[in-house]
């Protein structure tokens, strides 16, 4: 021990000469961690999942001329039904309508067995968040904005209206939440915007969004 102590302090006399590298090791460390931190780490913390059925919003919106709220229903008591049940899909898809093999698979695997599809939800919020779809209505926002229904939805949800397949779902390995789950600051883009107060009855009070 003592010898080592003496040695190392002896070494210090020569300064940078014997223990070389100058600033290089520092830079190497810096670059390695920057690469890790910016490119490797963000990928590492999510697991990737695909929807159980490839669903095309585009077909439903464009070809069938449907609107978001036809499937994503607001119930009579003001609560939001979220995703449609297999039974409600079966209103149209009681039998295979088109030529898409995914549709056939849906009809065979789910409609005929009555099983619910375990859709992955991109925007699901923690239990402590209260979100009212009734409060975020087209009527309310369009007092000033000029949103189409799908545009309004896309303020928070991934804009899937024009896509033929749903995006990959990234699930945070620690928290279990989707990468796209909105953070509070994103809600506050509107809720903390004073221009909205008095027009939409919006508020940034804690209890408006927490339960």
């Amino acid at each position: 021990m003592e010898d080592r102590q003496l040695n190392s302090s002896g070494c210090a006399k020569d300064g940078g000469k014997c223990c070389g590298g100058g600033i290089t090791p520092f830079l190497v460390g810096l670059v390695v961690s920057l690469i890790f931190g910016w490119w490797v780490f963000p990928d590492m913390i999510y697991s990737k999942k695909e929807q159980p059925i490839r669903f095309s919003h585009k077909v439903h919106m464009e070809s069938a001329g449907m609107e978001c709220k036809q499937c994503h229903v607001l119930r009579e008591d003001g609560t939001f039904a979220g995703l449609p049940s297999t039974a409600s899909c079966a209103d149209c898809h009681s039998d295979v309508l088109g030529s898409d093999p995914e549709e056939a698979r849906f009809v065979n695997e789910y409609v005929k067995t009555g099983k619910e599809v375990k859709w992955l939800v991109y925007q699901i919020q923690p239990d402590n968040v209260f979100f009212s779809h009734a409060a975020h209505s087209l009527d309310g926002c369009n007092q000033c904005h000029d949103f189409k229904e799908s545009e309004l939805c896309a303020q928070c949800h991934p804009d899937v209206a024009n896509s033929d397949s749903a995006p990959t779902h990234f699930e945070n390995k620690l928290t279990g939440y989707s990468k796209q789950t909105m953070k509070m600051w994103q809600c506050e883009r509107c809720h903390a915007n004073e221009n909205h107060y008095g027009v939409t009855n919006s508020s940034n009070a804690c209890f408006v969004c927490h339960k």
Binding site: C19, G21, F26, V28, G29, L30, S33, F36, G37, F41
Partner: peptide, 22 residues
């Protein structure tokens, strides 16, 4: 890599990590 170099590497890595979202 001697000890001093290693320490510098650690220093750089630490500084770098702090500048990333990790």
């Amino acid at each position: 890599l001697d000890r001093r170099g290693f320490l510098k590497f650690i220093g750089g890595a630490t500084a770098g990590i702090l500048a990333t979202p990790v």
